[in-house]
Amino acid sequence: MIKHHPDQDLLFAHAKGELSLSMAIAISAHCALCEACKTAVAQYTQEAADLAFNQHEIDDTTADNIDISANDISLMQSALPDELQTMLAQILCQPELATAPSNEPILVSVKNQHYSVPSVFRQHLDRPWQQLGKVSRMRFTLNEMNTRASLLHIEALGEIPQHTHKGNELTLLLAGEFSDINGNYVPGDFIMLDGHTKHAPKTLKGCLCYIVLDAPLHFTKGLSKLLNPIGELIY
């Protein structure tokens, strides 16, 4: 049972298309695993559509003839300026697209483990895995300044030294399980931590996560301090 969800503001912003790529991927992947949030986003999308399409009516003179019947179709079209007539004609030359895009989950393999992940990751999985002990990371190239997004794999019985973050850290568990002082997590759990929270996730059976970081990690515990440069390498 998924216990951790994105908050409603985030879901609405997602429906409006206002989130950055890294976060939009996270919400989309969560919705592929969580029927409740998927339904909520569908509802918000309807609301966003209405907001976008109806708020401009007053300013827009061309939209005056909204309440027309099907009889007026030809009349309206002939009223289009030349440039739009041309655009319309160009569009009508296009053939129907034969194939529907596939939304099938995608198989990801790391260290002889095979996981299926939501199709939203489709175009991001061509990066190499960087491995460090039980931890492997595939960093995405999303070009979002300091924000970093990656897939993180921890092998069975692996853990990450206790650390805090400079900025927010989002963890979306895609497969397997892990736990920290706050409890156990299941696939689909969407865990947002701020820069003040210390945590040391560990996994018994292994896990695959999608991680978004504002800033590189800084470890806080004893000897692991020596490993600080690794904070950047791991995530």
């Binding site: 298309g17 989309s28 895009p101 198989l107 299926s116």
Partner: peptide, 28 residues
């Protein structure tokens, strides 16, 4: 980039329920 249609699929996705999860373990 063309990521929009991956993020918000135009046709309905079936949420990966327990059954498809198991199915994919099986596939693996």
């Amino acid at each position: 980039d063309a990521f929009g249609d991956d993020i918000w699929p135009l046709c309905d996705t079936v949420a990966m329920n327990q059954e498809t999860q198991i199915d994919h373990k099986f596939t693996a």
